[in-house]
Every structure is written in structure tokens, then in C-alpha cells.
């Protein structure tokens, strides 16, 4: 089944330019691992960056300093290590290994695949694992919502990226399965509901606490760390 909900142009541009903070970048890179279509889009954006760099005018001063730079470069090359050799593109490396549910880079961030994780209870059968990043801006977690159960209805103080890794959910905007990315901002009020049959595991990245409709949830929110 192929991915239907993709990364927006703006997010992909920020990821390509290197300006996207780690938390959002984790969701984008993990989507890219599951989505050949967006990798093609990323390749084109990087090609556009290369074309801009190519078209950059070189000033006379810059041109004049190239000789000195080249001399320094040659000195480095003389003491360089052996060059890297081309990787042969083969699938043998992946043979004999069980297919993983969580792709890289996410798997390393949570410290293992789905079967090896230590989930923390959130109540009502839902679990989460907070993920540490160094961006000081986003809050990142892996969420597990029991099959057929809702995430409490909420709005967003800021942006929320949700990437589905197993199972599926639906809300007011559509249905989201493995690899699908939901990009919600403060204008969206929604109640995601996990579909029947399988628990829904997703990566959720936010930059502001969710605003729950339920007063009780708002009270226990700080305790849960959501």
C-alpha cells in the first residue's frame, strides 16, 4: 500500500536546506525512508539548490584567492587517507534480517524496534515513549493508541506532525496509514480515532502543548508530559 499523505513543499524545503529543527526533521526523514515519491521531490529540491550555487557569481576577490586555496588543498591531498570505494548496490545486506517496523532514523532514536520498546502508560490503554532531541523547540514521542479507540479531541497550540508507522487512524481530514504524515496547525480541531484490528503506532511531533477539550485531561496533562 502506498503513501497518500506526503510532506509539504515548505517542510521539504526546510529539510533540504538544513534549517529544519531536529524534531520535525525526524518525522520528515522517517517519512522519506518510507516514501520513494518524496525522495524524488527532495532530489529535485537539492538539484535546485545546486543550480543556484552553480549560478552564483564569483567576485574578483574570490577568484583571486582560489590559487592559495588550491595550494592548501594539494597539501591536504598529499596526506589524504585512502578514498572511499563505491558501495555495491545489493539487497544481500537486508536478507536474513527480519523486516523492521520502525525505519531509520527513528529506530535508533527510540532504541529499538517495536517489540523491544518500554512503553509508558498514558491511561485508557494508550502508551507513549518520549524521544529526546537537542533542538529545544519540539516535543517528540512515539504513541500507541489501542485499536478502535480515540485520541481525546484537541486543538493545537502550534504545529503537530503525526507519522503513522503501524495500524491506521482517521479523523476529520481523512484516513492515515503506514507512512502517511498528517501536518496539523493551530486551525485544526480534530479527534483521531485508531482503526479496528491493530493498535496504531505513530510518531508525534509538536511545538506547543495540545489543547484538550476535556477539563480532566487538561488537569492531568502536565503529569503525563503531553
Amino acid at each position: 500500500m502506498s503513501v497518500r499523505h506526503h510532506v509539504s513543499d515548505e517542510l521539504l524545503l526546510d529539510y533540504a536546506s538544513g534549517s529544519l529543527s531536529e524534531g520535525w526533521g525526524l518525522a520528515v526523514a522517517t517519512h522519506l525512508a518510507l516514501c520513494p515519491e518524496c525522495r524524488v521531490r527532495l532530489g529535485r529540491i537539492e538539484a535546485a539548490a545546486g543550480a543556484l550555487m552553480d549560478a552564483d557569481d564569483v567576485t574578483d576577490a574570490q577568484a583571486a584567492s582560489v590559487d592559495a586555496s588550491w595550494a592548501a588543498m594539494q597539501a591536504r591531498m598529499a596526506e589524504a587517507d585512502a578514498p572511499a570505494t563505491a558501495k555495491t548496490r545489493s539487497s544481500t545486506q537486508t536478507m536474513g534480517r527480519p523486516a523492521a517496523i520502525l525505519p531509520e532514523p527513528l529506530r535508533s532514536y527510540v532504541g529499538g524496534d517495536v517489540g523491544e520498546l518500554k512503553w509508558k502508560a498514558l491511561g485508557r490503554g494508550a502508551y507513549h515513549i518520549p524521544i529526546r532531541t537537542n533542538d529545544g523547540e519540539t516535543s517528540v514521542r512515539l504513541l500507541r493508541i489501542p485499536a478502535g479507540k480515540p485520541v481525546p479531541e484537541h486543538t493545537h497550540g502550534g504545529r503537530e506532525l503525526t507519522l503513522v508507522l503501524a495500524g491506521s487512524f482517521h479523523d476529520e481530514t481523512g484516513r492515515f496509514g503506514r507512512g502517511d504524515l498528517e501536518d496539523a496547525d493551530s486551525s485544526l480541531e480534530h479527534q483521531p480515532i485508531a482503526d479496528e484490528g491493530e493498535d496504531c503506532i505513530c510518531l508525534a511531533v509538536t511545538d506547543a502543548p495540545l489543547k484538550f477539550k476535556s477539563r480532566l485531561l487538561r488537569i492531568i496533562q502536565p503529569v503525563l508530559g503531553i
Binding site: 537486508t94 525505519p103 529506530r107 532514536y109 537537542n134
Partner: peptide, 20 residues
């Protein structure tokens, strides 16, 4: 120049979905 990382996918990863 950045204190945080830029996460990247790994084409050798078993969960990586290859190109068409």
C-alpha cells in the same frame, strides 16, 4: 554550526522502502 542534528534516512535499512 547547529547544536541539534539533521536526521537522515538510511537506504541500507531493512525497513527502507526502495524506489520503484
Amino acid at each position: 554550526y547547529r547544536k541539534d542534528r539533521r536526521p537522515e534516512f538510511d537506504p541500507q535499512d531493512p525497513a527502507f522502502v526502495p524506489d520503484d
